Simulated scan of single mutants.
Amino acid sequence: MIKKETGKTALEYIQLKIMGLAKQKLSDGKKTVNEIAYELGFQYPAHFTRAFKKSTGLTPVGYRSLN
């Protein structure tokens, strides 16, 4: 159903939503990158950083400094 509605696979859709939440939390600036990574369900902060950079082209710290 998700593919039919959005044109994206379920995995792609979930990843986009997670990165959207990550951007909100990073812009807020109240929590560390590690805290955000754990809140979003990443076992290791490095995995979060890698996924975020793949999605946005910026590291979480780099994104935070721009906003």
Rank of each mutant, 00 (worst) to 15 (best):
E39S: 15
K8V: 00
K54V: 05
T56K: 00
Y13R: 02
K4T: 13
T6A: 02
T6C: 02
N67G: 05
L21K: 06
L58P: 00
Y38S: 12
F52W: 06
I2T: 10
A51H: 08
A46W: 14
A22E: 09
S65G: 00
L66R: 09
I14L: 14
A37K: 11
K23D: 06
F42S: 11
F42M: 10
K25P: 00
E12S: 02
R50E: 11
P45F: 15
Y13A: 07
L16F: 11
L40T: 08
Q15L: 12
A51V: 10
M1N: 12
Q24R: 11
E39D: 15
T6Y: 04
L26F: 10
M19C: 02
N67M: 04
S55C: 04
L40G: 06
K54A: 12
A22V: 08
L16C: 08
I2N: 06
R64D: 03
A22S: 11
A37R: 10
L26G: 08
Y44G: 06
K23F: 07
F42L: 12
F48M: 03
Q43R: 15
S55K: 11
L66I: 10
K3G: 10
K30C: 05
T9H: 05
G57S: 03
G20W: 00
Q43T: 14
T56P: 00
T59M: 01
R50G: 02
Q15H: 12
Q15S: 11
D28R: 08
L16P: 00
Y44D: 15
I14H: 12
T9N: 04
L66Y: 07
M1V: 12
Q43D: 14
V61S: 15
Y13C: 02
M1L: 13
N67A: 07
Y13H: 11
L66N: 05
T49M: 13
F42G: 06
I36H: 10
G7N: 00
V61I: 15
K4E: 14
I2R: 11
T49C: 14
A22K: 07
K53P: 05
I18F: 08
G62N: 00
M19T: 02
G41N: 10
S27N: 04
Q43W: 11
N34M: 09
V61D: 14
A10M: 01
K53G: 02
G7D: 01
G7T: 03
G29H: 08
Q24P: 00
E12P: 01
Q24T: 12
K17A: 13
S27L: 05
F52S: 05
P45R: 14
K54M: 04
V33I: 14
I14M: 11
K30T: 14
A51G: 04
G41C: 10
A22R: 07
Y13T: 04
L26N: 09
S55G: 01
V33K: 06
G57K: 03
T59G: 09
K3P: 01
F48I: 04
T32Y: 09
F52E: 02
E35V: 07
V61P: 03
F52V: 07
S27R: 06
Y13N: 04
I2C: 07
E39G: 08
L11G: 01
L58I: 01
I2S: 03
K3I: 09
F48Y: 07
D28C: 04
L11S: 07
